[in-house]
C-alpha cells in the first residue's frame, strides 16, 4: 500500500520532546576506532583524556606532564599515568532511498528519516563526524563533515529534501559509501532489505573498511500482515521498483505462508549479519520510535 512521505519541516523529523532525551545519549562502537580529531567520545585508546586508566613505565620521549611524581617519590622510579583518551567517531547513517521505502502506514521512509535524524543528532551533540547518506540507484548521496549541534539543521534540511524513488542498487551504493574517505566508525544502514540483488556483498564491503555496521530493517505493518488495512482479498500486487505483478487471493493460508517466508527471510538475514559481524535489528514502521531510540537501541548497545 502506498502511503507517501509527509515530512516537510524539522519538527516533523525531530520532535522537541525527544531532543532532551537524545542530549543524554552517545554512540557506542564495538570496535577500537582511530578518530581523526580529539573528540568527546571515550575511546579505548589511552591518551589525554580525563579518566584514569593505568600506569606504565616511563620511556624516553614521553610527555613529562603525565609522570606520577608521587610514585617516583615512594619508589624512585618513573611511571607514567595513562588516561582513556577522548576522540571523535565517524557516524554514517545511510538510508535506503528506493521507491520500496515510500510505502506503508506509517511510511517507512519517514520513519527511517526520523531515526536517521535522531541518530545524527546524537552524533552531532557528541562532536562526532556525522555523515548522512541516501542509497539509491546504486550510488550514495551524502552530506558529510558535520560536527556539532549547530549542524543539526543542515542535517534535517538535507533529509527533508530527499525523495524515495527508483531502485536501491544496494551493493553498488554500499561500495560507493565504503570507498568514500569518511574515516572509520559506525555505519547504520536503514532499509527494508527486500532486495532482489541481496545485501551480503554490500555489508561485506562496509565491514572490510573497518566500519562497525548496524543493519536496521524497517517493515511496514502491511508487509508483516498483508491483510491489514485491506478488505479486498483478491488483489494484484505490483512491485513498485521493477513493476512486476503477482495475482493472489489473500486467504488465511496464503498470509500465513507469506509470514513464514518472511520469517525465513529475516532469519537468513540475521545469520548472514552474524557471520559478517553486522548487528541487525528488525522493527515495524509503526514502532514508537522515541522509545525505540531511548530504550531499545541502548539495550542493543548502539547508544549509551
Amino acid at each position: 500500500m502506498i502511503s507517501p512521505s509527509k515530512l516537510i519541516k524539522l519538527e516533523d523529523l525531530l520532535q522537541p520532546s525527544l531532543v532532551a532525551a537524545l542530549d543524554r545519549l552517545d554512540l557506542m562502537s564495538r570496535k577500537m576506532l582511530q578518530g581523526r580529531m580529539q573528540g568527546e567520545r571515550r575511546s579505548r585508546r589511552r591518551g589525554q583524556g580525563m579518566d584514569f586508566a593505568d600506569f606504565r613505565p616511563y620511556a624516553a620521549g614521553d610527555d613529562l606532564r603525565f609522570v606520577d611524581w608521587n610514585i617516583y617519590g615512594r619508589l624512585d622510579r618513573l611511571f607514567l599515568k595513562m588516561f582513556l583518551e577522548e576522540e571523535d567517531l565517524g557516524l554514517v547513517v545511510a538510508i535506503d532511498g528506493s521507491a520500496s521505502m515510500d510505502t506503508g502506514e506509517p511510511n517507512k521512509f519517514d520513519v527511517a528519516r526520523r531515526i536517521a535524524m535522531a541518530l545524527a543528532y546524537v552524533g552531532l551533540v557528541n562532536q562526532h563526524r556525522v555523515t548522512l547518506a541516501l542509497l539509491k540507484d546504486g550510488s550514495a548521496d551524502r552530506l558529510t563533515g558535520m560536527r556539532g549541534r549547530r549542524r543539526a539543521a543542515d542535517a534535517a534540511n538535507w533529509l527533508i529534501g530527499q525523495k524515495a524513488a527508483g531502485t536501491t542498487g544496494f551493493d553498488s551504493a554500499c561500495r560507493s559509501l565504503a570507498s568514500a574517505r569518511l574515516g572509520r566508525g559506525v555505519v547504520i544502514v536503514i532499509s527494508d532489505y527486500l532486495l532482489r540483488e541481496g545485501y551480503e556483498s554490500g555489508f561485506r564491503a562496509l565491514a572490510a573498511r573497518g566500519w562497525d555496521v548496524f543493519a536496521l530493517q524497517i517493515l511496514s505493518p502491511e508487509e508483516m500482515d498483508p491483510r491489514k488495512n485491506n478488505q479486498n482479498l483478491d488483489v494484484r500486487l505490483v512491485d513498485l521498483e521493477n513493476k512486476g505483478e503477482v495475482e493472489i487471493t489473500l486467504t488465511g493460508a496464503v498470509v500465513r505462508d507469506h509470514q513464514r517466508r518472511l520469517e525465513t527471510f529475516n532469519a537468513a538475514m540475521r545469520e548472514t549479519c552474524m557471520k559478517l559481524g553486522v548487528r541487525q535489528m528488525t522493527i515495524s514502521s509503526a514502532v514508537d520510535y522515541q522509545k525505540f531510540l531511548v530504550e531499545t537501541l541502548r539495550k542493543e548497545g548502539l547508544l549509551k
Partner: peptide
C-alpha cells in the same frame, strides 16, 4: 476465467512470487 483483481502497490514482490507461479 481469470479473476479481475484490485491493484495494490507493494514494496516488493520478492516473497510472493513462489505463491503464484501458475497465476501469471
Amino acid at each position: 476465467l481469470k479473476l479481475r483483481r484490485e491493484r495494490r502497490d507493494i514494496s516488493s514482490t520478492l516473497l510472493w512470487t513462489s505463491h503464484t507461479k501458475d497465476l501469471r
